[in-house]
C-alpha cells in the first residue's frame, strides 16, 4: 500500500493564508512581528534580570498559553461552516483522519512553537545542574534523578505543552459541535476562567484550605502515588491537582536551589517532596491533559465520520 504523506489541508492551515498575508501586507505584518519580538525580549529580560523563580516563569508561560491556545483552534471547523466551505471539503477524497490531522496537526504545531518560545525563559529560571564534582563529574543528570532540577523543568515544559494541546483539542471539538466561532471562543475562555480560577477558589473556600498535603507527605512509593492519583480523581481535590497553575506551584517545591529552607530541610518538607515525586507530579497532569486531548480529537474524528459521512 502506498503511503500518502501529502496533506493539503495541513499545508493550507499551516502556511496557506499566512504566507500570502505576509506577501500582501509585508509592512503591517513586519511591524507586528517586530512588536511581538520586542515584547518577547522585554518579558525575557524581566524574567532573567529579576531572577524570577521557575514557577513564576512557568505561570507566565501558562498564562500566555491560556490566552493564545484558544486562538489556535476556535475557528478550525466553525469557519468551514460559517464560510460554507465544509461541503466542498467533505466531498474531496481526504479521509476523516487526514482532515482531522490537517486541522489538529496545525494547531498542535502552533502549541509546540509557543512551547519552544517559552523554553529560553524556563531554562533561565531552571538552574539545571550538571555534575561538576564527585564520581558523577562530567555526566548529565536524567529526568528520573530527584537530586537535580531536570525533573521539575521537564515536567513543567510537559505541562505547558500538554495544557495547550488540551485547549486546542477541546477548541477543535467545540468548533465542530457548535459551528460558531464566537460561541467556541467564548466557551473556551469562560471555561478556562471557571476551571482554573473560580472552581479552585470555591473548593479552597469550602474546604478551609485543605489541600491534601498531609496525604502527599505520607506517600512512600510509586504504587501508593498511583493509587492516590486514582483516588483523588474521584474527589473534589482533582480541581486543584489537575490545575496547571497549582502544578507549577508544587513543582517549585522540587527545586533544589530555590527551596525555602534548603540549608535545613525539615522532615515534613522532605517527605512532601518525595510524595510529589512518587506522584510523578507534573507528568501525571501532563499525561491526563494529553489523554483528554486525545479524547476530544477522537470525538471530532467520530463527528467527521458520521456528520460528514467520511
Amino acid at each position: 500500500m502506498k503511503l500518502r504523506t501529502e496533506n493539503p489541508l495541513l499545508r493550507y492551515q499551516l502556511f496557506g493564508f499566512t504566507v500570502n498575508r505576509w506577501k500582501r501586507q509585508p509592512w503591517l505584518y513586519g511591524a507586528v512581528a517586530v512588536g511581538v519580538g520586542l515584547t518577547y525580549l522585554l518579558v525575557f529580560q524581566l524574567v532573567a534580570f529579576n531572577q524570577s523563580s521557575f514557577s513564576a516563569a512557568l505561570n507566565l508561560c501558562l498564562f500566555i498559553m491560556c490566552l493564545t491556545a484558544p486562538l489556535m483552534a476556535y475557528n478550525l471547523f466553525s469557519l468551514e461552516y460559517e464560510k460554507q466551505t465544509w461541503e466542498s471539503l467533505a466531498l474531496t477524497r481526504l479521509t476523516a483522519k487526514e482532515i482531522l490531522w490537517g486541522k489538529w496537526g496545525a494547531a498542535l504545531a502552533r502549541v509546540g512553537i509557543l512551547t519552544l518560545l517559552a523554553l529560553p525563559m524556563l531554562l533561565t529560571t531552571a538552574n539545571l545542574d550538571i555534575y561538576v564534582s564527585g564520581s558523577l563529574r562530567g555526566k548529565y543528570p536524567t529526568v528520573l534523578e530527584p537530586t537535580t532540577n531536570l525533573y521539575p523543568f521537564t515536567a513543567g515544559v510537559f505541562v505547558l505543552f500538554s495544557w495547550g494541546a488540551l485547549i486546542v483539542s477541546l477548541g477543535m471539538w467545540l468548533s465542530f459541535r457548535l459551528k460558531r466561532t464566537l460561541s467556541t471562543a467564548s466557551t473556551l475562555y469562560a471555561g478556562q476562567v471557571f476551571a482554573l480560577a473560580l472552581l479552585p477558589m470555591l473548593y479552597l473556600t469550602f474546604s478551609i484550605w485543605e489541600t491534601g498535603s498531609e496525604f502527599i507527605s505520607a506517600i512512600g512509593s510509586y504504587w501508593e502515588g498511583f493509587a492516590w492519583w486514582l483516588y483523588s480523581l474521584f474527589t473534589a481535590r482533582a480541581i486543584l491537582y489537575l490545575n496547571p497553575f497549582w502544578t507549577a506551584a508544587e513543582l517549585q517545591r522540587l527545586f533544589l536551589q530555590h527551596h525555602s529552607n534548603w540549608w535545613l530541610p525539615s522532615w515534613e518538607d522532605q517527605a512532601y517532596e518525595e510524595g510529589l515525586l512518587y506522584l510523578n507530579w507534573g507528568f501525571a497532569q501532563g499525561f491526563t491533559y494529553l489523554a483528554l486531548a486525545l479524547l476530544f480529537a477522537g470525538l471530532t474524528y467520530r463527528g467527521l465520520k458520521y456528520a460528514w459521512r467520511k
Partner: peptide, 30 residues
C-alpha cells in the same frame, strides 16, 4: 466521490490564497 462534482447553492471559498493555489489545494485533495 472521484466521479462527481458538486457546486452547492450557498458556497464559500478559502480566502487568502490565489485562484491557482485554491485549485491546487483541491487537486491535491482529489
Amino acid at each position: 466521490l472521484p466521479l462527481l462534482g458538486y457546486m452547492p447553492d450557498f458556497f464559500g471559498l478559502y480566502e487568502g490564497i490565489t485562484v491557482t493555489e485554491y485549485l491546487e489545494f483541491f487537486a491535491a485533495a482529489y
